[in-house]
Amino acid sequence: MKEKTKAILLSLGLLVVFVVIGELITGTGERGGDNLTEYQLLMGMGEKQAHVPGPIEVFKLGFKEMSHPFYDNGPNDKGIGTQLFYSIARVLAGFSLALLFALPLGFLIGMSPLFYKALQPYIQILKPVSPLAWMPLALFVIKDSIMSSIFVIFICSIWPMLINTAFGVMSVKKDWLNVGKTLEMGNFKTAFKVILPAALPTIFTGMRISMGISWLVIVAAEMLVGGTGIGYYVWNEWNNLDLTSVVFSIVMIGLVGMFLDTIIAYFSKFFVYQE
């Protein structure tokens, strides 16, 4: 048997183990009675005691949600697909904006020791600030919750891309730059024909880190600003005491995060080179 097949079988085996353990330790909550009015159900009287849902319960809900992922029954009840779509759109907007700034700035820092030294303190101070700390300021200045959450994504995803671009540009081998010099390439040509391709793998690593952080941060940001998005959805379901939906969201957030990472990893394959 091949290593890959073995790994898949082991993964599936572990899944079964997790499901069984999950079912055993979560139990099923006592029902409060059968003939409850909608009001009583809303008040949480359907169950005598709230409980952490087991895997099968989550799977059932997931199946139901995924068969109508984009429904819209007003501000408080939108399909999981719609919510994820909002979050992904915000992440992509903030991430792209950050990329637009990080690339040229990273090139500048990487190519000029002067700018590297001058900007280093700012980067070191701003980088460790939790992006959510920017939220109140963003809300006040931008006066729009959606744009503010995009700004928060921008501010958290710019650093890894900026630092990786600068590092990639700085560590271009001197031999390759000498090749450019002996071929009488100008600065512009050297930047595009030598430095950029040499730095691209490092830049892509920065993009992957940034995308990962963005996806972490968007959930928290949307919990704060509310309205739409998967973060809002999770918090809303907590307020509804619908833990099954919360667990289902966790799974979905994980899957989407993996998907976003896979996309960048896929594209980076075309630019990675071996020395």
């Binding site: 031999d175 390759w176 000498n178 090749v179 002996t182 030598v194 391709p197 040499a198 691209l200 630019f271 080179y273 071996q274 020395e275």
Partner: peptide
């Protein structure tokens, strides 16, 4: 003036 470097210096990509 063409240069042949000691470690070939080909662009690996």
């Amino acid at each position: 003036r063409g240069v042949i470097f000691q470690n070939h210096s080909l662009l690996p990509w």
